[in-house]
Amino acid sequence: MTERKKLTLKDIAKELGISISTASRALKEHPDIADDTIKMVKDFAEKHHYVPNILAVNFRKNRTYNIGLIVPELVHHFFSTVISGAIDGAKKLGYNVLVSQSNDLLADETTACRTMLASSVDGLLISISNETLEADHLKEFLEEGKPVVQFDKITDHLNTPKVIVDDFEGAYQAVKHLIDQGYKKIAHIRGRREVKNANERALGYQKALEDHQMEQSSDWIKDCVHINEQEGYDFCEELLKSQNPPDAIFCITDLVALGVLKYLKEKQIAVPQEVGVVGFSNWKLAEIVNPGLSSVDQHGYEMGERSIVKLIQLIKDHNIENEEVIEIKTKLIIRGSSLKS
């Protein structure tokens, strides 16, 4: 025969005098096909460099084996570990992951979601932006019969599975540690009040102070908007220049905590002797700074892996009516920024 640029199943069947379905089943070594037929078809396919049309196969199955993953920031250490866990978990199960970022903006998140939907991903894994409240753009996936799994930053306006860490307990243990180290006036640089995990961490902070009969002051609570290093630096300056300055600061993220440490270093304020600092996320940088930053580990890799496994299970089961909450326990990693004794 004259070989074509791309050999098809139809070509194989015609050349060997068998049906297309027999050729297809022979390549898959179906038990109903005779061994000599299987050998004949596979030998011919190998000789003529036959490559299956995966897109056509997936189209017939109504699947692309692609999953969308949207995070607020790609360069954020926590989210990079989540992405690694998700990609590794998906690979084991025969899926690919298409990654995008929202820049923590609702408009960018909406665009990314609709691009993913137009690309016919089988489902979506997302940590919502700080601006996302109603999540109508995410409901478009459910309307198309495609499951969504939320992780880390979530909204209760979307009835989907959620993979989270115990933010309340993580914050509680961080503040309890500061109390156990002898700090008396503990401030909190918190996240946005409309963001669920930020509120859980703030509640954990408050409950730890209440349970240990510690002094509290509304002046010791500062609200971030951008959740960045500069806010940590600026709020630390405000706190320490106030009439009743704190002697320890619990931060919403490690990035904010790095801003706090930067200010303390510039002003030659001893850490942890004069001011203790604890972050949240356990970035790699937390190990590198001097002194090392105490931080709450969110187990990003595990979160990514468990989220993707849950999503693929929903895809296989054709199930979008699932509201399971999977909660991962945090772990406080104690380093020099808070360890007095």
Rank of each mutant, 00 (worst) to 15 (best):
residue 42 K to F: 05
residue 120 S to Y: 14
residue 258 L to N: 02
residue 170 G to P: 00
residue 338 S to L: 01
residue 172 Y to F: 08
residue 232 G to T: 12
residue 187 A to F: 05
residue 239 L to K: 15
residue 97 V to H: 12
residue 56 A to M: 13
residue 49 H to D: 10
residue 179 I to A: 15
residue 47 K to P: 04
residue 259 G to H: 07
residue 295 S to M: 11
residue 12 I to R: 03
residue 23 A to W: 07
residue 57 V to L: 03
residue 180 D to A: 11
residue 237 E to D: 07
residue 148 V to G: 00
residue 234 D to T: 13
residue 326 I to N: 08
residue 135 A to T: 11
residue 297 D to F: 04
residue 76 H to I: 11
residue 305 E to Q: 15
residue 279 G to N: 11
residue 154 I to H: 00
residue 130 N to I: 09
residue 279 G to S: 08
residue 255 L to Q: 09
residue 24 S to M: 01
residue 273 Q to H: 11
residue 16 L to W: 14
residue 148 V to L: 08
residue 283 W to Y: 03
residue 124 L to I: 04
residue 129 S to R: 08
residue 102 S to I: 05
residue 152 D to R: 09
residue 216 Q to E: 13
residue 149 V to D: 05
residue 297 D to L: 02
residue 22 T to G: 01
residue 316 K to L: 00
residue 310 K to N: 07
residue 150 Q to W: 09
residue 139 K to D: 02
residue 198 A to W: 04
residue 281 S to R: 10
residue 323 E to S: 08
residue 280 F to N: 03
residue 257 A to L: 05
residue 67 I to T: 03
residue 338 S to I: 11
residue 77 H to D: 01
residue 303 M to G: 00
residue 112 A to V: 01
residue 146 K to T: 15
residue 187 A to M: 01
residue 292 G to D: 07
residue 111 T to K: 15
residue 132 T to L: 09
residue 231 E to D: 00
residue 325 V to F: 15
residue 297 D to Y: 06
residue 283 W to A: 01
residue 129 S to M: 03
residue 193 R to P: 00
residue 156 D to Q: 11
residue 222 K to C: 09
residue 222 K to V: 06
residue 105 L to Q: 11
residue 18 I to C: 08
residue 337 S to W: 10
residue 56 A to I: 14
residue 55 L to V: 10
residue 110 T to Y: 14
residue 176 K to W: 12
residue 24 S to Y: 08
residue 32 D to R: 13
residue 174 A to W: 13
residue 153 K to P: 00
residue 208 A to R: 04
residue 307 S to D: 06
residue 26 A to E: 11
residue 267 K to Q: 14
